[in-house]
Nucleic acid binder design. Structure first.
Lengths: 209, 209
DNA sequence: CATCGTAATGTCAGTGACTGACATGAGTCA
DNA sequence: TGACTCATGTCAGTCACTGACATTACGATG
């Protein structure tokens, strides 16, 4: 189905399982005991591995909380690449953001935990912004630059479009989190994204109080 | 001149001086020895205080590197508030970003050091994005919301405009840093900011490869 | 199936950021 | 001068994270 299933042997499977046990153990402990209150030794013991093994799988405690985010970034990239080449850029970005909506609905508990900890713990907030969201932003920048046939280093437009999109996404995530994950993420995202389109067509950049 | 000079006594002055000595000692050591290679004990000794005193002034090692950024945020706010009420929002944001340009030209060495460390050290990058830049972004969001007479929590437009502006600012800072601080920051910022205006008038959000 | 190389994990002993508790001394104010 | 406050010093501790080395489990190869 994907491209990473090149006949996985027992060794690779065990490694992947250990990694997943660590992620799940961490999420459970963070949810019940709190982020700061949970030590990496606690998590390692709960996953039945040595602390050293934990740090071979994850560089930081924060990375452990967001351990399942690589899949999400890959899904985002896939969504960006799957759109027809002549589709308007904003629509491509919209579809990409909506691919994240799907995930949030399916993994609501985990995403809510991450969002709540990001709101409460500075180091988690920093990781979320500077690592997780920045990686999404880079995917969008590259995809937009490709479609505009431009150099994302010299031309600021891809980065600006991506920045606006990420802000819309953050608004949607915040509203979704505030509502306890009960609201329809697609609606929220569409609402925020439409504000970008409003900027690009009417003169919303001028006075209108 | 400002509003924080409510007759500063000797005690407050000494506290401020200690804080400044820590900032300068840290910058010097970071520049000569490297960020990771410099310990907080080194910095404290270089500033002739106890390590405990360092951590009473700054919560983290990263905060120490960006210890002079509060002034910058205050300047940004002042720039946002000083613009006439009927000025177009994008022009207000432009003036605010340009107020940061002034500072970068004046404190080029310090800003280059911060930018270079942010590019090289993950924890510094995270702090820069999630603390420093996020605080600027909040200032812009609030100012834009005020001018659009809208609620920045419910209405996504202020946050999206601020997100686009922050992306433009990041592009300008990156280009300025890449050029060793020799380029004209105002030109770079104007170049990046004009890409926002391009989005709001012509149909740059559609196909145009 | 025995063997050998390799990759994952365990063990152990650090380093260094950061914190709480308590002591001290300088600055301020009556 | 004397009481009071607040910045700082001292000290001991916790915990995230790392390097070095030993060990065990896989997997390929004869």
């Amino acid at each position: 189905m994907t491209d990473t299933d090149a006949i996985e042997g027992r060794r690779d499977r065990k490694k992947r399982e250990t990694r997943q046990r660590l992620i799940d153990a961490a999420a459970t402990l963070f949810a019940t005991t709190g982020f700061a209150e949970t030590t990496t030794v606690d998590i390692a013991e709960s996953a039945d591995v040595a602390q050293r093994t934990l740090f071979r799988h994850f560089a930081t405690k924060e990375a452990l909380l967001y351990g399942d985010m690589d899949d999400l970034r890959i899904a985002l990239r896939a969504a960006l690449e799957s759109r027809p080449g002549d589709e308007p850029v904003l629509e491509v970005v919209r579809q990409a953001v909506l691919s994240l909506a799907d995930d949030h609905q399916r993994n609501a508990d985990r995403r809510l935990l991450q969002a709540r900890l990001a709101a409460a713990v500075p180091s988690v907030s920093a990781y979320s912004r500077a690592v997780v969201q920045a990686s999404w932003e880079r995917e969008i920048i590259n995809a937009v630059a490709l479609r505009l046939d431009t150099d994302p280093i010299a031309d600021p437009r891809p980065e600006i479009i991506a920045g606006a999109a990420m802000s819309a996404l953050r608004v949607a995530i915040r509203q979704w989190t505030t509502g306890g994950g009960r609201a329809d993420f697609v609606e929220l995202a569409d609402g925020a994204l439409s504000a970008i389109a409003d900027l690009t067509s009417p003169g919303a950049g001028s006075t209108d109080h």
